[in-house]
Each structure stands twice: as structure tokens, then as C-alpha cells.
Computed example of a mutant assay.
Amino acid sequence: MNVISKPKITVVTAVYNKEKLIHKCVESVLNQSFTDFEYILVDDQSPDNCPEICEDYAKKDSRIKVIHRENGGHALAVNSGILQGIGDYYFIVDADDYLSDKNCFSEMIEIAEENDCDIVLSDFLGVWNNKNKPKKLIFDGIEVMEYLIKEDIYHPTTRSRLWKKTILNKNNLFKNLICDDEEWTPKAFYRAKKVCILPKPIYFRTTPEDSVTQIATEKNYFKKAFDKGFTTGVLINFFEKTSISTLQKRVLYKRFISLYLSSLHIYANIITNNQLKSELFVVLDENKHILKYSKFYDSSRHHLIAWIMRYFGLKGALLFFKVFIR
């Protein structure tokens, strides 16, 4: 196969400790009917046989490029692939996931180029049905977030989506957070002038027990809570400076505040280590002002939490979570 000098799509997969799953992932990409892509496999100093597996694939297919880097986490590994890519569009696949449709790239590129889309979404988790299926297939970025959140099918994932390179350039790279896409994706949607939808599932997601997001240790719970508390503040500070309407904020902020409330729950009911509690309290305290937007909820419980925070402070809200919300 000839080397492609300027591919249409750059596909990026960060690889770490996935030797049992990486074959299915890579094969699902290589078997696409659309072939005008480069595939960047980023070995994040994986301790298993993944580095050798990646190199073997590169020897067999000239579209594959392997990057070996010092271990720094999933987000930074994806960043390495993005920075090395030269495609007009980008598609990110996790090493433990795979594409379930061989026409995924061809259909997405056709939609993107016919409509000059910045982002093409697919049905990530197979949750669209006749009741919540979108009534139109072209939105602006904030519109599509509103639709997904209202239908309770919003997921901040960067996977299963085709991103125009200009959106990646405008939106900067990922931060090294467990929930890196919670902050990145809403900002990308905001910057997108046009988002198109491919209303079919094309991406199969797996959740291995050894995934950092699945391991139920106190340290991982702390990391999730810390990142979510921090991210909520960043998102609301960002959108407060935009010109989106109050009605749009009402929808988006309910989603963002849910991240902060999740952090309160983890602090009150899961974290027991005093050092971790102290560090988490700092980030929660720095962002407690965002609970004033609980007024956007229709729930009396959320209004009560905001009232408690206003008159009894963060410690009062945490006590409420410990006693009444488990």
C-alpha cells in the first residue's frame, strides 16, 4: 500500500496495557471501506506487549505510525497523536473500543464535506430511538448540546465523533484529567458553527475492570471528585463570558452543576482520608459560587442545597449530603 502524503482523516489511539483488546480495535479501523486515513498509535510506555503489537501493525500497513512516549496518562498521549497528525479531520478511538460499522468513516466524511460540518456525531451508546431521535440532522454547537441534554443522552466523549482540524486547533489540547472530555467537549461544541448527525451507532464501547474510571479505590474517587469540582468552575466561568441565552445556560448549567454535586457526594460519603478530604475541600470551596445557578433546576432539593450553601456555607452543604444523600 502506498504511503498517503495528506490523508483526509487522522485516527488516534492511545495505548496502555490493552494487549488483549488492541487487536480488535486496530482491525476495526484498518477494515474501514474508506481508506484515505493515517492511523497514529501512541504507546504510553505500556508495560505489556502493546509496544511490539503496535510496531508489528506498522510494518504491515504504511498508514500506521507509532509514537512511543514516556508514560503521562491518556489525555497527554492523545495530545501527542493529535500534534503529529496531518489530516483534515480527526477521529479518536480508545484502545479497548472498536468500530462496529465498516462504513463509519465513509459516511461521516460524506456528511462532513457535503454540509461543511465542524463536527459529525454518531449514536455513541445506541440510545437514539423513534422517541428521542433528532428531528433534524444539522445544528449549531450549542443547539446540539441542548438537544442531547434535554433528551438525557448527552455524553461528553470525544470518541465516535469526527472533528474538523480547525476545531481542534481552536479548542486547544486535552488536560490531564480523568474526565478530560467533560471540559473539552462543551467548549468544542460552543466553537462549532455546524454540527451534523449520523443517526446510527458505529462505535462499540467497552469498560474493562482495569480502566482508571472503573477502579473503585478511594484515591480514584478523590481524583474524579477533584477533577469534576475543578471542571465545573472552569466551564461556568467560560460560558458566563459568552453570549449564549439564559435559556441555553439553564440547560447547560444543570449538566455542569451535576458534576459539582457529584463531587460533594464523594467528599461527604466516600472519602475518609483526612489529607485527601483537605485537598478536595479546597477545590470545592473555590468553586462553591456556582451553586447559585441551582435556580435553573426545577427540583426543590436543588433549591434547598443552594439555600443551605448560601446561609450555612460549604460545610453545611456537605453535612446535608452526608445525612440525607447517600
Rank of each mutant, 00 (worst) to 15 (best):
I270L: 15
I308R: 10
N274A: 15
F296E: 03
L284N: 01
L304A: 09
T272H: 15
S262M: 06
H265Q: 09
I271M: 11
L280E: 03
S262Y: 11
N274F: 14
L261H: 10
K277F: 10
T272A: 14
D285A: 07
I271T: 05
V282A: 06
Y267N: 00
I305G: 11
L304T: 12
Y297P: 02
Y267C: 02
H289M: 07
L291A: 04
I305R: 13
N274E: 15
L284M: 10
F296G: 01
S294G: 06
K292I: 10
E279A: 14
L280W: 07
Q275A: 13
L261T: 07
V282T: 13
L280I: 06
K295A: 05
S278I: 04
A268N: 07
R301E: 08
H303M: 08
L264R: 01
E279D: 15
L304H: 10
I266N: 01
S263H: 00
N273V: 08
E286Y: 06
D285C: 10
H289W: 15
Y297N: 01
S263P: 02
H303Q: 12
K277Y: 03
K295L: 08
I290D: 05
T272I: 15
L280T: 03
D298A: 09
L276F: 13
L304R: 10
S278F: 13
L280F: 09
L291E: 04
L304N: 08
H302C: 10
K288M: 14
L261A: 03
S262W: 04
S263V: 02
I290N: 09
E279G: 05
S299Y: 03
I305A: 12
N273R: 11
I271A: 10
N287C: 11
Y267R: 00
F296S: 00
N274T: 13
S263G: 06
A268T: 03
Y293D: 04
K295S: 08
Y293V: 05
I271E: 02
E279K: 15
Y293T: 03
